[in-house]
Design a protein around this nucleic acid. Structure first.
Length: 219
DNA sequence: GCCCAGGTGGGTA
DNA sequence: TACCCACATGGG
């Protein structure tokens, strides 16, 4: 990995920060709420997730014990706005069962586990893929685990920094080797990528007015 | 009315 | 391994 690559990765961050300002993620009140949101936001816009989380709060079900005690059908009804509500209800309960069994139902106890080992355990839970697991590590536990999503790959592939067929772990590795190991930086960088993806990447004609245009091969 | 969003699991060849 | 499909709401 060249110092030039490191410079470009840093330059992208600075351009995004300048364009969108600090994002200060994750939008949630507690680490547990981050974990729930990470599951609910799978392939779903955040606005829909907010409605689903609000329903859970209103029903006083936003706790590991309550989710474990609630039937799938009731849970699914409450998280209906978040799309794929039946599978997501199961995912919430699978996570709740895991948290109860391994960590006494407390997210803070997860934080005591070594990051690599915890990531392996999270990935073994049904319904938790790499992006969801990394979101929990980074945004709920403040662990330096870079989160990769569809926007990340799209943006950095267009800039010629990442091959189009790169796997999730390869993209994650790209960022972790080209950035200082800093949870706050990873946090802000991913949040900025999402913000950028939601706005500029949809622009037509593509890249017009994009803050990364000067750095983008396909612009 | 159409498109797509802060993915993941399962089935098939 | 590499695809393809199911899941299935709501805002622009």
């Amino acid at each position: 990995m060249t110092t030039n690559t490191k410079r470009r990765v840093k330059a992208v961050y600075q351009r995004l920060l300048l364009a969108y300002g600090p994002q200060r993620w994750w939008p949630a009140d507690t680490p547990y709420e981050v974990c729930v949101g990470a599951i609910l936001t799978q392939s779903t816009s955040w606005a829909n997730v907010e409605n689903a989380v609000a329903n859970l709060k209103k029903a006083r079900l936003l706790s590991n014990d309550r989710i474990l005690k609630t039937r799938n059908r009731r849970l699914a009804g409450l998280i209906r706005p978040s799309l794929y509500y039946n599978v997501k209800a199961r995912k919430l309960r699978e996570f709740a069962r895991f948290l109860a069994k391994e960590y006494g139902g407390r997210v803070e106890n997860m934080a005591l586990e070594e990051t690599g080992e915890l990531r392996r355990k999270l990935l073994a839970v049904w319904g938790l893929g790499p992006e969801t697991a990394d979101s929990m590590l980074l945004y709920a536990l403040d662990k330096p685990s870079f989160v990769v999503d569809a926007y990340t790959k799209r943006i950095f592939t267009r800039m010629g920094l990442i091959p189009a067929d790169a796997t999730y772990d390869e993209v994650k590795g790209f960022f972790e080797t080209n950035l200082p190991r800093d949870a706050r930086l990873y946090n802000e960088y991913h949040a900025l990528i999402v913000e950028h993806g939601k706005n500029t990447c949809k622009m037509k004609p593509r890249c017009k007015g994009c803050c990364l245009k000067a750095m983008c091969r396909s612009a």
